[in-house]
């Protein structure tokens, strides 16, 4: 078991090494304002919800982890391994809660981390479960959303309903919007086959049309939360505006990223650390113009790249 945890630690170090230590340091420094203000919020309001919020990333990680077979194959005690991993990963959150003297939040975090290993992993059985989710209301052109919602399955739906119920509280919608943005990024990691691409890029502004449609859909899906939020917190209307801008920009950036580096038979676009940096730029007011410029540039590159591979129909070749 110690050997297994060692392998995990090595993998983590390798991932950080691949991302570049210097780059990470710069990213953290660049976003230090956001991070510090986040710490400030946690310290200022020591409510038990923070414990729940901090356990959410672990819950998502647990649900989507792909190494169930490996763990079984190695005949290792699965639950102790998971407790050790999740406990180790939650140390920074626990420290923050201890510093803010949020004992109730800490108790919630510990309880959640202890309970998570009892939840089944993502598997074919979960795919069967996700098949029961009715997604006929999502139009054909938004196949990325159908696929993405099914992949998130009941976790996504629970989060959506949870955020809807808790939308009266000022912090729920921003927190949910952040998770929602991360989910949106993952929706655009897979690349569709060329037949579908041709249909999208058949017209000159096919990419812009697609981005527009997906932005509207992304915002419509959180419209119920937004309505409840504005009813209870009308004085913070600018929060809502910021969330609409954030969701729209993340959708546009993710879609453009998918197409900007496309080449024949490319099937996957890993949402890299750059995407994380983009999100941080978007949420920190001082860097928002940078994020806006970045998204514009990415869209232009995507348009140019797809016109190279799938030039739109001109009048001459239509006749």
């Amino acid at each position: 078991m110690v050997a297994f945890l060692k392998i995990r630690l090595n993998l983590l170090i390798r991932a950080l090494h691949l991302a570049g230590w210097g780059y990470l340091l710069v990213a953290i420094l660049a976003c230090s304002g956001v991070i510090l203000s986040f710490f400030g919020s946690v310290m200022a309001s020591p409510t038990p919800e923070w414990g729940l919020a901090f356990s959410l990333p672990t819950l998502l990680w647990h649900y989507y982890r792909q190494d169930k077979r490996l763990l079984h194959h190695l005949h290792l005690p699965i639950k102790p391994i998971l407790w050790a991993e999740y406990g180790f990963g939650s140390i920074p959150a626990a420290i923050l809660l201890i510093f803010s003297k949020n004992w109730l939040g800490l108790a919630v975090l510990v309880a959640c981390i202890a309970a998570i290993p009892f939840i089944p992993f993502s598997s074919k059985a979960n795919q069967d479960l996700s098949k029961k989710i009715t997604l006929n209301w999502i139009p054909v052109w938004a196949f990325e959303w159908k696929s993405g919602i099914r992949r998130m399955s009941w976790v996504g739906i629970l989060l959506w309903w949870g955020s809807l119920i808790g939308s009266w509280w000022i912090g729920t919608l921003p927190l949910f919007a952040f998770l929602y943005g991360t989910a949106i990024m993952s929706f655009y990691e897979d690349v569709e086959p060329k037949e579908i691409l041709i249909q999208t890029f058949e017209v000159k502004y096919g990419l812009l049309k697609k981005i527009g449609q997906h932005m509207v859909l992304a915002n419509l899906l959180i419209a119920p939360q937004a309505v409840i939020f504005i009813i209870f917190n009308v004085q913070y209307w600018y929060f809502l505006l910021a969330i609409v801008v954030f969701v729209s920009m993340v959708t546009c950036f993710s879609l453009a990223s998918k197409y900007a580096g496309w080449y024949p038979r490319r099937q996957k676009v890993a949402q890299s650390i750059l995407s994380g940096l983009f999100v941080l730029c978007t949420v920190s007011a001082i860097f928002t113009p940078v994020a806006l410029g970045w998204v514009g540039w990415k869209t232009w590159v995507a348009h140019q790249n797809m016109q190279r591979w799938f030039p739109y129909k001109t009048v001459s070749n239509l006749t």
Binding site: Q127, E144, S147, R151, P193, R265, Q267, P311, N317
Partner: peptide, 18 residues
């Protein structure tokens, strides 16, 4: 142009979870 052609490759791939 590509709009005139449908092309079935040897090893076609699909979009997941559809």
């Amino acid at each position: 142009t590509k709009h005139d052609i449908a092309f079935l490759e040897t090893d076609p791939y699909f979009y997941p979870n559809l």
